[in-house]
């Protein structure tokens, strides 16, 4: 009986693993294979082993293409990611704190806005009008504000759930110790939010770094290119250099992948820590 269930569990586990292998690993292997082939072989788009390895040559070509556009894209993407994640963390922790700690009549309304931010898809054209109106269209800082606005709801909800697990006694002890409200927040509460802050930083920065559509809409212009948009460099209506395109994909996929693998455990910890007492 017991042995039977154990065997069934093992079979289930094996099947799941196989499924995930096909969904996640096979495409990655495919990308990596094409990236080291020469142009003719890669255009066949198959799993055949490359007859000659041209990794280094593809690598240099991709980096230096169109006046080192990939490096500029990396710079832009990093500026956008760091800027918007910093603002996201500070603002959403503050909003989450106030929402959780100060009960007022406005809370319900603010929560409705937060949830609306999560549920209602953003409208592109009106957003562009607004951006143009305030002179932020086609600017990096405009893009940063867009990313903050789009990510705020999710981060607020994560923080709010986590802050509920921090005893109110701590706030009160700090208040008796003479801390002003902003000192209570920055010196007592924020340091204790570290697990969920790590989660927020990792999840949001991967999302923003990997974002393709928003920079496409809101940040046109050669100087403003972000990493995901460099994929277009080797794709055109008539000919696509698959080996270079896949090398490009590889180069923009690996950094977030490393971050994700590295912080995997903390992400889950931060997500579930708030869930217990939320």
């Amino acid at each position: 009986m017991n042995r039977k269930t154990a065997r069934r569990a093992r079979i289930k586990g094996g099947l799941t693993l196989a499924l995930f292998f096909f969904v996640f690993v096979v495409p990655f292997v495919f990308i990596a294979l094409q990236a080291v082939k020469n142009r003719q072989e890669s255009s066949l788009l198959n799993f055949a082993w490359p007859s000659e390895w041209v990794f280094w040559q593809n690598f240099i070509t991709v980096i230096s293409a169109r006046d080192y556009m990939l490096l500029l894209a990396y710079f832009n993407s990093i500026v956008i990611t760091v800027g918007s994640v910093t603002l996201l963390v500070i603002f959403s922790a503050m909003v989450g704190y106030v929402l959780q700690r100060r009960k007022s009549r406005l809370n319900g309304f603010v929560m409705a806005l937060v949830l609306a931010g999560l549920m209602i898809p953003p409208a592109v054209v009106p957003t562009i009008w607004v951006l143009q109106g305030i002179g932020l269209f086609k600017t990096i800082h405009g893009m940063i504000l867009i990313q903050v606005a789009y990510g705020l709801s999710f981060s607020i909800l994560l923080y709010r759930a986590f802050i509920a697990t921090i005893p109110r006694d701590l706030d009160e002890a700090a208040r008796i110790d003479g801390a002003k409200p902003w000192q209570i927040f920055f010196r007592v509460v924020l340091p204790l939010l570290k697990p969920v802050t790590v989660t927020n930083i990792v999840v949001q920065s991967i999302g923003i770094f990997n974002d393709f559509t928003n920079p496409l809409y809101y940040l046109p212009g050669r100087r403003n290119v972000t990493v995901q948009l460099t994929v277009f460099n080797f794709q055109s209506q008539f000919s696509t250099q698959y080996n270079l395109m896949f090398m490009n994909i590889l180069l923009v996929t690996i950094p977030p992948l490393i971050v994700f693998i590295f912080f995997n455990r903390q992400i889950v910890a931060g997500m579930t820590a708030g869930a217990i007492k939320g």
């Binding site: 005893p167 006694d169 701590l170 009160e172 002890a173 700090a174 008796i176 007592v188």
Partner: peptide, 9 residues
Amino acid sequence: MVFQSYALY
């Protein structure tokens, strides 16, 4: 004040 939970940071 000394709290029941001690409320140490």
